[in-house]
Design a protein around this nucleic acid. Sequence first.
DNA 1: CATGGCGAGTCT
DNA 2: AGACTCGC
Length: 792
Amino acid sequence: MNQENRIVTLIDMDCFYCQVEEKLNPELKGKPVAVVQYNPWKGGGIIAVNYVARAMGVSRHLRGDEAKEKCPDIQLPNVPCIRGKADLTKYREAGKEVARVLQRFTPLFERASIDEAYLDITIPVQQRLQTLNVNTLKTAMVPNTFVLGYDSIEDFIAEVQGCSSDNIDFDYEQAKQLLVGATIVSEIRAAVFNETGYECSAGIAHNKIMAKLVCGMNKPNKQTVLPKHCIDILFESLPVKKVKSLGGKFGYNVCGTLKISKMGELQKFSKAELQNKFDEKNGLWLYNIARGIDLEPVQTRFNPKSIGCCKQFRGKTALTDLQSIKKWFKELSDEIEERLEQDALETNRTPRQMVVSFSQQVNGRDISSSRSYNFLADDDLCAELFCQKALELLLDSTEGVKPKEGEPNRQLKAPIKFLGISVGKFEDHSDSKKIKKIKDYFSFASSVKEVPNENKETRSTKIFEEKIVKKNEGKEQIFQKFFKSNLVSTSNTSIDTKDNIIIEQKDENVLQSSLDKQESFFAKFLNSEQKNNTSGKASRIDEIRTPSPNCNINCGEASNDTDYSGSTIDMEINKSISLFEDDPLDIDRVSSMRQLLNKSNLTEEIYNDTNPSSDNKVENSEPKNLESFKCPDCGKIIDINVIDTHADYHLALKLREEERELRRKEVVEKNKDKKIVSDKNYAKATPVRETSKIKPIPDQAKKIEGVSIASYFMKIDDNSPTETCAECGKKLPMDKFGEHLDFHAAQKLSRELNNKIVKSNNVENSAKRKRNSGSPVKKPKVQCKPIDLFFR
DNA sequence: CATGGCGAGTCT
DNA sequence: AGACTCGC
């Protein structure tokens, strides 16, 4: 695909921490506000300033007291301090809230920081262009928008619409796309504001670097478009250091060796020259960026790759004895544990590695080191472990800190100025569990209606064989069959005449033809998996496990195949849910989002969209098919075109709930074992603990929660005669008993496959870990430092 | 003493 | 694996 024709936007929250404080305490609104951390010394350090306060000359780098001088009535809310250190939880939560809104607009969504995200909106722009006549576009559709190089947005619109520019460089197509991009970004920002109350700014350009660059040029609550032909004008006066990643040493170096200071001057150098003066990679990057070209794809990432916390101990507060190091490691570990529990609830993953970093002052110089530990399979990932390992790693790499006879608490000569613990290399658990559930569901559902009365045994084995033969066709239509049967039963029984609700008795053919056009991505997922599976007789299911746990749909170079192995099920599930949970009746949006979803793994095709033959038929053939039906699960009226997506939604909800319940149980179990002592120290209980307290009775709850996906779809009529299954002990209506046995047959198949998953994972994990953790005790690096000198 | 606490990424 | 850079 052509990376230069993308439309990329950077959304950046305006003075985010201030906005969060203002939302939490509305009295602050309209007043000058700066968020401060660690009050004691000179009123604390300012980490965010709102625009009222900025107008009065308050900026970061000031202390709280200095801000007060400049602006006596400034409000200085404090970053909460927990465990003796700043606690950023509420800002992280707010950031996630925003990200969840942004994520809806495209799967090509990359969280760049707590308050920033890149969105590749190329596809939404192209879709919009199919229905929108640019000539009808009005200024009101792009409020608060600036176009670099133009006096007003009107001028730009006029030029795009006039299609007759005197500027030879003016690229009509690209300008048009940027303009449509700007309207979409306006909508995105409006959605963020409406749903969260937060304001943001945005840059709209053809790539990440340029979007980022112009995002800051009009703030707050504004957006800035950068047309390609205006880049040269911009660069003429733009200091090199303003461009992301040129703001530090490298940028300084570039300016020094080339004797330049403005971006524009960079264009005078040839590719070879630049590659000669710097290295090949950097030279090429500079050559491109000088022309406004940046090929970096927008990654698809919602969750952070690592979770860490750290603390500085500046000046006199530097740690000089083992006890205080222990104490601070404990604090850091507790925070990590808490955040990890929260993270596990949300993302179903656990870290495989922890890194402890620290720095010491030696002869006035700061020396920093880090050591890592790879968790063992049976490690209990709790604060105690983090703390203990952190201490071990630190002691093993800084000789002489260990307590000696008669000197249990040695004094460090080289005081610790910084401690940090972070965990990462996450392993995703949702896939294996969810795959199993999805498999169970599909296996069961497909076996239900297929075979009429026959001898049980033959039927079971027959289904077993059939499954292998007709996987593909069978699975694609699971939802279709399910809904067809439900449609019939609901329209027979329930009739709602009063409301606007229309239950349509569909003509079978219409329904079927509509259904035939649809595809569920769960079904697609299974098909792609099947593809892998049938190629070799040994189970190659481990292949569908995402290679990088957290990864994504379009993860760089891995995006060229169209199967689902590049996206975690978890992500698909979240998308599926987000489609319907906010705005269930907005069929247009759902429809277009669905197109997006279905196409999101086919980016290659879309970008090379020269052949409209293949995928477009679904959307284009019958735009006026507004027939709808009532979902048996939620009663909502669903457009027939999105039945499968909606079915995915319910399945996804179930999966997520089961998953969360499982997590909760694990946490409850874990907390039971733990001493409750530590809870007392901190008034604020974690959300995890709160829920676990409310969740007492496992037995009673089980009746409701314990419903598996499979049984969920099997409605039991209380009045009919039942029979007890020898396999699972469940009571079943007689007429469903045969099917139930089929279910077990299917389940066996699933289990067989899943056992292989489990087994191969275990083997893999233990092998890895044996290798990596064989000698957790490491020799101190020679270059590191001679620590013995550090003691008095 | 003094932007602090992050998180991503590159180089070796 | 660990040191170091970049940026908010």
